[in-house]
Design a protein around this nucleic acid. Structure first.
Length: 361
DNA sequence: CTCCGCCTGGTTACGCCATG
DNA sequence: CATGGCGTAACCAGGCGGAG
């Protein structure tokens, strides 16, 4: 007994059933303009009986809004972005917006495609953590298309109309290194994935707003050392790819080549995990012989022994803030770009302690 | 081939009508 | 005469079909 599928009920069907015009039916259902209580009830009843569902496509056509935002991030599996995504979803939902998510795997071509696709779907705005700070032509174009942009965590100076929401990575990094310095450490190594330009000198006063997070954290490390009157040593910097295995090798090399080292700072939780394993395998006692501090608080940080001291960033709040910024520029025609900078927080656990040979005196 | 008008469904400016 | 309630018609973007 298959009957031909009925086309979905439209506002016209509802209006006809309720015996009013379609504009009255629309007003009654969307609750704008003035409609008598009796009429509203009749329309509501007709809509319920027909199983009426407003056509979002048609609505967008006339309002010019889709009540949808896009999110483009490099990696949904990454803890920071996963939590930030929760903040974005919550803030969007509370404001009556839907979210379309795209993960680009750090691939610029995929990011371009994702942005194009979202623009084609006429999203009202996009929250993006761009793969590149320079190759941003696809993001710059969005301005002309009337699509708002908020940059999350990663700057893109050429996207002028975009607001920028981020943690102060320089400050957060300084927090981590200062904690080590306060404990009495003087020989502090760093495991970083920052790719600094060739010929980079630590003394150059960097504009932290234009730096990628990893680079900003390296600058924070240098600043903290300088603030304490300590020398920056190039051999104390272990360059690693963004992977546990790479950080593992980098840490092994770092501590082998620098026997005087008493503390290691890892600028990312992925790197901390590799470094932690390296110290264990080298049978270096942490924190007795070597202190270890990481960046970004993850579940495993409290499950391992010693529990890991970290600087945490407010990922969830960052996602919320980014969405709020985006929606505020969508709401108002003026594109006042509001930048928001949140602060990291030091969480002291068991992997940091006074350096060896300083306990007595 | 190009051009033009029609179509979709919800929103809204505008104005008419009835009522107080 | 003011005001609430309601209808009419224009409008949006873009695909399609018919006319030229």
């Amino acid at each position: 007994m298959s009957r031909p599928p009925l086309p979905p009920a439209t506002i016209i069907d509802v209006a006809a059933k309720a015996g009013v015009s379609k504009s009255t039916a629309a007003r009654a259902l969307a609750r704008y303009g003035s409609v008598s209580a009796k009429t509203r009830e009749a329309v509501q009843k007709a809509a319920d009986e027909l199983g009426y569902q407003p056509n979002a496509l048609a609505r967008s056509m006339i309002t010019g809004r889709t009540k949808t935002i896009g999110v483009v991030i490099p990696d949904v599996g990454n803890h920071f972005f996963a939590v930030a995504m929760r903040g974005i979803s919550t803030a969007a939902r509370e404001a009556g917006y839907e979210v379309l998510l795209s993960s680009t795997e750090g691939d610029l071509a995929l990011e371009r495609r994702a942005v194009e696709l979202l623009a084609g779907k006429r999203v009202d705005g996009i929250v993006v953590a761009p793969v590149s700070t320079e190759d941003t032509d696809h993001l710059e174009r969005l301005e002309g298309q009337g699509i708002a942009v908020t940059l999350l965590d990663r700057p893109a100076p050429k996207v002028k109309a975009a607001s920028f929401v981020s943690v102060d990575h320089v400050e957060a990094s300084t927090l981590a290194v200062n904690h080590l310095i306060d404990l009495g450490h003087r020989e502090i190594g760093i495991v970083t994935e920052a790719l600094m330009p060739a010929g980079w000198k630590p003394d150059a006063r960097q504009e932290s707003k234009k730096l990628r997070p990893s680079a900003a954290r390296l600058v924070g490390y240098v600043n903290a050392l300088r603030g304490a009157g300590l020398r920056y040593r190039h051999e104390y910097v272990a360059w690693s790819a963004y992977a546990k295995a790479s950080a593992y090798e980098a840490t092994r090399r770092l501590v082998r080549d620098n026997p005087g080292l008493t503390a290691v700072y890892c600028t990312d939780s992925e790197l901390s995990a590799g470094a932690f394993a390296a110290l264990q395998d080298l049978k270096i006692s942490c924190p007795k012989d070597m202190s270890l501090i990481g960046f970004d608080d993850q579940d495993w940080a409290t499950l391992v022994r010693p529990r890991l001291t970290v600087v945490d960033q407010p990922s969830y709040q960052l996602g919320m803030a980014a969405t709020e910024e985006l929606l505020s520029t969508i709401g108002s025609a003026q594109d006042r770009r509001g930048d928001r900078t949140l602060s990291g927080r030091l969480i002291v656990r068991d992997s940091t302690a006074r350096p060896p040979n300083t306990s007595d005196r």
